[in-house]
Nucleic acid binder design. Structure first.
Length: 124
DNA sequence: ATGGTGACTCGCG
DNA sequence: GCGCGAGCCACCA
């Protein structure tokens, strides 16, 4: 199992199918840390300024597919980033209304089965 | 080691 | 449904 928490977050996020979303809390729960939602958000914010040799960047990790538990794009982002997230999601078919809400009954990704998760974290 | 910092959540009123 | 307050956690100085 990868020792770096951020790396695990990125690996799981990369498995979110196009056109689907999940929440920070759910990603944390998948990693066995149900209360580490904030850390997940922090991990994704770190994608903004990656090291030059970093394998995980905003280009390789579909960060836009992670929203809050209410199914809303976090309004705490900088306005421009929020708008970009909405655009990216709409571009892949996710319906985002004017209040930046997404219907989780339609677009929520339930996550991988336990056996798959093990492979994701170990192999990637 | 210690404390500050978020792209979070949940429970209340 | 909305705002607030209080936990919670990995990172980094």
């Amino acid at each position: 199992m990868a020792s770096n928490f951020y790396e695990q977050v990125y690996k799981v996020v990369q498995r979110i199918p196009r056109g689907k979303v999940t929440s920070y809390g759910r990603v944390a729960a998948m990693l066995g840390r149900p209360r580490a939602a904030r850390a997940v958000g922090y991990a994704l914010s770190a994608l903004k300024d990656p090291r030059s040799d970093a394998p995980y960047t905003g280009e390789t990790v579909p960060w836009q597919r992670v929203v809050n538990s209410q199914g809303r794009i976090s309004i705490r982002h900088r306005t421009e980033t929020t708008a970009r997230q909405a655009d990216l999601l709409r571009a892949e078919g996710v319906v985002v209304d004017e209040q930046l809400r997404i219907d989780l009954d339609r677009f929520l990704w339930e996550g991988p089965h336990l056996v798959e998760l093990d492979d994701i974290l170990n192999q990637g």
